[in-house]
Amino acid sequence: MSHEAGYKTGEEKLVYMANQIARFFEAMPHEEAVSGVADHINKFWEPRMRRHLFEIVARGGEGLRPLVLEAAQRVKRPREADA
């Protein structure tokens, strides 16, 4: 599904970004890959983006690569006030 304006909506893009990160770390040993993805998201994703990620995961994580789903458990929950 693509926005008619010719770009992805926020959520589509978030899924895409998360998967892209996963594909880089998938070349590494599993443990390193899981912590790599989680660490990257913790370091660079603003709380709003992390909240959306958790929402997507809570809905079943459709479209997310398995590595993202696994790493999501180590992603920092945003504080209520920030999200």
Partner: peptide, 16 residues
């Protein structure tokens, strides 16, 4: 604030 902020493309997404 100890949380990372938005990057330019994320600012635009958040605006939309």
């Amino acid at each position: 604030d100890d949380e990372p902020g938005l990057r330019i493309p994320n600012m635009l997404d958040a605006a939309l």
